[in-house]
C-alpha cells in the first residue's frame, strides 16, 4: 500500500461536496442572526437588556448614597436635622441631675455643650408619667447616685493579727521531741557471730 493510496482514501473520507442550498441557508442564518446593515449588534432582549435594567437603578442608588454621605441633610426626613434627632419623648428624667450642684472632686454628668443640650431639651418636654413604684425607684436611684463620692478614697483600717478580734487561727504550739536513749548490751555478750 503506497502513500498515494493512503492519501487517496483519506481524501475520499472528506471528499463530500456541500449541499447545493448550503450557501442560501448560511445567508438566511446571517439574516436571522440579529445584525443590522451596519454590522452592529441589534440591542437584544437577552442578558444585556436585563443588565442595563438592573445596572441603572444600582448606579442611581450609588450616586444617591455618595451624595447623602457628603451632605446628610439630603437624606434627612422631616424632624431630623443632620445628625441631631429631636425626640418628642424623653428617655429619662434628667431634671434632677441637671439641678445638682457641681462639687469639686465629683464627676459631672456631661460636659460643655452636650450637658447644656440635654438640660435645654429636657426643659421643653413634659414630665414623664411614672407609676408610684417607678417614682420611688427613681428617687432611691438618684439619692444613691448623689451619695457617691467619686474622688474620695476611704482609708481602710484593720486590727493587728494578735488582737482578740483577729480571725487568724491560734499560734501553733510545737511540742519539743524528747529523745530517750535505748539501752544496748555490750558487744560480745549474748549472741556470737560464729558464722
Amino acid at each position: 500500500m503506497s502513500i498515494h493510496d493512503i492519501d487517496r482514501v483519506a481524501r475520499h473520507l472528506v471528499d463530500t461536496e456541500p449541499p447545493p442550498n448550503l450557501e442560501t441557508r448560511i445567508l438566511a442564518r446571517l439574516d436571522a442572526a440579529g445584525r443590522d446593515a451596519t454590522g452592529q449588534e441589534r440591542p437584544s432582549e437577552g442578558w444585556t437588556w436585563w443588565m442595563w435594567r438592573a445596572a441603572l437603578p444600582a448606579a442611581l442608588a450609588t450616586i444617591a448614597i455618595v451624595m447623602g454621605t457628603r451632605n446628610p441633610k439630603i437624606l434627612a426626613p422631616n424632624g431630623v436635622q443632620g445628625t441631631e434627632v429631636l425626640s418628642p419623648q424623653p428617655v429619662a428624667d434628667f431634671s434632677r441631675i441637671a439641678k445638682l450642684e457641681p462639687q469639686p472632686g465629683r464627676a459631672s454628668v456631661g460636659t460643655g455643650k452636650a450637658a447644656e443640650g440635654i438640660s435645654t431639651r429636657t426643659s421643653d418636654t413634659t414630665e414623664p408619667r411614672l407609676s408610684s413604684e417607678e417614682a420611688a425607684w427613681m428617687d432611691r436611684r438618684i439619692l444613691m447616685l448623689a451619695a457617691v463620692e467619686a474622688l474620695r478614697v476611704e482609708h481602710l483600717s484593720f486590727d493587728p493579727l494578735n488582737s482578740a478580734g483577729s480571725t487568724q487561727p491560734e499560734a501553733l504550739a510545737i511540742t519539743p521531741l524528747i529523745m530517750t536513749p535505748l539501752p544496748l548490751e555490750p558487744l560480745g555478750s549474748g549472741r556470737h557471730n560464729d558464722r
Binding site: T16, L22, R25, R29, L30, A33
Partner: peptide, 14 residues
C-alpha cells in the same frame, strides 16, 4: 458539517 458551517459563518460575522 452542514450545521457547523452555518454556525461558523454566523460567528465569523459577529
Amino acid at each position: 458539517a452542514d450545521n457547523t458551517t452555518q454556525d461558523a459563518f454566523v460567528l465569523a460575522w459577529r
